[in-house]
């Protein structure tokens, strides 16, 4: 699981696919206001792109992530909560949504909805949570690698993917477990 796949086809197609997926995710996120889509679906698409990268490049893809996944979760939740609370300061109610119509030169009328910020928060949260889970699993897998290298290779060769009694230091998987939680918090904040 931790070894990169040396598949030229996969690597090449992923290189082309990832930008497209991110673009699709952005479209899906913003059309979610009154059509199928939204932050959750968009976030999952980006997360799928990250997972594709991982499948093609192996753990390097996770190590190279530009942002810490948990920072992303925090930022997303912050944004969502901020958008939920903001109307209180202008005399509205929690989670109230406002629509502004702007006249942008050369583009025409653009509708800006304040709840798009909420969707963006959910988007960030989902991307962070899913990549966080992936990172935690990869890390747990890596932590096991010494066992595999140390014992299993000598005995039965590299074909053995995992040592069945491979032990991981205590608390190692804390990341994996906890990263599942913001996803649980997600639906609560979505509503």
């Amino acid at each position: 699981m931790s070894r990169p796949r040396d598949s030229v086809i996969l690597t090449t197609s992923v290189n082309g696919l990832v930008p497209v997926l991110v673009l699709v995710a952005v479209v899906v996120t913003f059309r979610g206001h009154n059509a199928p889509g939204g932050g959750f679906a968009g976030g999952l698409i980006v997360a799928a792109a990250v997972i594709l990268r991982y499948l093609a490049d192996g753990p390097r893809a996770v190590d190279r992530l530009p942002v810490q996944p948990m920072t992303l979760v925090g930022a997303g939740l912050c944004l969502a909560v901020a958008v939920a609370v903001a109307p209180l300061f202008v005399g509205g109610q929690v989670l109230e949504s406002y629509i502004w119509t702007l006249d942008v030169p050369a583009v025409g009328k653009v509708k800006v909805v304040s709840s798009a910020g909420f969707d963006l928060g959910v988007f960030l949260l989902v991307v962070g949570a899913v990549t966080g889970m992936l990172a935690a699993f990869v890390e747990a897998d890596d932590a096991e690698a010494p066992d595999v290298v140390g014992s299993a290779i000598l005995e039965s060769g590299p074909a053995d993917d995992r040592a069945p009694d491979g032990r991981v230091a205590d608390g190692r998987l804390a990341d994996g477990r906890s990263s599942a939680d913001p996803t649980g918090g997600g639906p609560g904040s979505r509503r």
């Binding site: 747990a140 998987l173 994996g176 996803t183 649980g184």
Partner: peptide, 12 residues
């Protein structure tokens, strides 16, 4: 979320 969590627990 729950299934992801349970899988993590199973792995652990």
């Amino acid at each position: 979320g729950t299934i992801a969590f349970l899988l993590a627990v199973a792995y652990r």
